[in-house]
Amino acid sequence: MDVFMKGLSKAKEGVVAAAEKTKQGVAEAAGKTKEGVLYVGSKTKEGVVHGVATVAEKTKEQVTNVGGAVVTGVTAVAQKTVEGAGSIAAATGFVKKDQLGKNEEGAPQEGILEDMPVDPDNEAYEMPSEEGYQDYEPEA
């Protein structure tokens, strides 16, 4: 019985440690998101679009440190934060509304985080759909 109880105690310690790591990862992701939003706020009209992409990228980098179902929630929060940063930029006159959601080359930025393969159960990952990809044929 002692062996059984000791095993359960060790398992509990492992769960607590994993929860603490997840909590730490979420806190880091939130900190990076805040950094990115402050970065966007300090940019001029020309830099705002690039700044919004930076927020998304920093958040995406930190999301990889967070495991399990938390990833889905962090990704949703990050996307809403990026959308909010863009709205703030438009409201303050840093950028025109028609410039939001495009990178410096004018290509749409939507789907940055949505296409990231995420499995809350950590069982399997699927690649994003290939609808947006084109076949590449090298020139002879």
Rank of each mutant, 00 (worst) to 15 (best):
D2P: 01
D2A: 01
D2W: 02
V3K: 01
V3F: 04
F4P: 00
F4W: 03
F4L: 08
F4T: 00
F4N: 00
F4E: 00
F4K: 00
M5G: 01
M5V: 08
K6Y: 02
K6R: 05
G7M: 05
L8F: 01
L8E: 00
S9M: 14
S9G: 13
S9H: 09
S9L: 08
S9A: 04
K10L: 14
K10T: 07
A11E: 00
A11L: 13
A11G: 02
K12P: 00
K12R: 14
E13I: 04
G14W: 05
G14M: 15
V15I: 14
V15L: 10
V15N: 00
V16W: 13
V16N: 05
A17Y: 03
A19L: 15
A19D: 00
E20Q: 11
E20I: 13
E20G: 02
K21V: 13
K21S: 09
K21C: 03
T22C: 09
T22V: 11
K23T: 04
K23P: 00
K23E: 00
K23Y: 06
Q24V: 06
V26G: 00
V26R: 00
A27Y: 10
A27C: 11
E28L: 08
E28N: 02
A29I: 14
A29Y: 14
A29D: 00
K32R: 13
K32W: 15
T33C: 03
T33F: 13
K34P: 00
E35D: 11
E35R: 09
E35Q: 05
G36N: 15
G36P: 01
G36C: 10
V37C: 09
V37A: 05
L38M: 12
Y39Q: 03
V40P: 00
V40H: 02
G41I: 06
G41P: 00
G41Q: 07
G41K: 02
K43Y: 12
T44E: 00
T44Q: 01
T44R: 01
T44P: 01
K45C: 09
E46C: 09
E46W: 04
G47H: 13
G47F: 14
G47R: 13
G47K: 09
V48T: 02
V48D: 00
V49S: 07
H50L: 12
H50E: 07
G51A: 14
G51C: 15
V52K: 01
V52I: 05
V52F: 03
V52P: 01
A53S: 11
A53I: 14
V55N: 00
A56N: 02
A56W: 13
A56L: 07
E57C: 03
E57W: 05
E57K: 10
K58T: 07
T59Y: 15
K60W: 12
K60T: 04
K60A: 14
E61C: 06
Q62C: 09
Q62R: 10
Q62T: 08
Q62E: 03
V63D: 01
V63F: 07
T64L: 10
T64N: 12
T64W: 08
N65W: 11
N65P: 01
V66S: 01
V66P: 01
V66M: 12
G67V: 09
G67S: 07
G67W: 09
G67T: 11
G68C: 03
G68P: 04
A69K: 08
A69C: 05
A69E: 03
V70S: 02
V70C: 05
V71E: 02
T72G: 10
T72K: 07
G73E: 04
G73N: 07
G73D: 02
V74A: 08
V74W: 12
T75V: 15
T75G: 07
V77P: 02
V77R: 03
V77D: 02
V77T: 03
V77F: 08
V77Q: 02
A78G: 04
A78R: 09
Q79E: 03
K80M: 12
K80V: 12
K80N: 03
T81Q: 02
T81V: 15
T81H: 03
V82I: 06
E83Y: 02
E83R: 10
G84H: 05
G84L: 11
G84E: 07
A85T: 06
G86H: 08
G86W: 15
S87N: 06
S87A: 11
S87D: 07
A89H: 04
A89F: 11
A90E: 06
A90I: 05
A90G: 01
T92M: 03
T92L: 11
T92F: 15
T92H: 04
G93E: 05
G93H: 07
F94D: 03
F94T: 06
F94N: 05
V95L: 11
K96R: 08
K97I: 14
D98Q: 08
D98L: 12
D98V: 03
Q99H: 12
L100Q: 10
N103C: 08
N103Q: 10
N103P: 10
E104Q: 12
E105M: 11
G106K: 06
A107F: 04
A107D: 06
A107R: 06
Q109C: 07
E110T: 14
E110S: 06
G111M: 15
L113Q: 13
L113E: 13
E114I: 11
E114K: 09
E114T: 08
D115S: 05
D115E: 13
M116I: 11
P117N: 05
P117K: 10
D119R: 01
P120W: 05
P120N: 06
D121R: 03
D121W: 05
D121M: 09
N122S: 08
N122K: 14
E123A: 06
A124V: 11
A124Q: 07
A124N: 04
Y125R: 04
Y125G: 10
E126V: 14
M127F: 10
P128G: 06
P128H: 04
S129F: 13
S129I: 07
S129Y: 05
E130S: 03
E131Y: 06
E131V: 11
G132P: 04
G132R: 14
Y133Q: 09
Y133K: 03
Y133N: 09
Q134P: 10
Q134V: 03
Q134S: 10
D135V: 10
D135I: 10
D135E: 09
D135W: 07
D135C: 07
Y136M: 09
Y136S: 14
Y136K: 12
Y136G: 08
E137W: 05
E137T: 06
P138L: 04
P138M: 07
E139I: 11
A140P: 07
A140N: 15
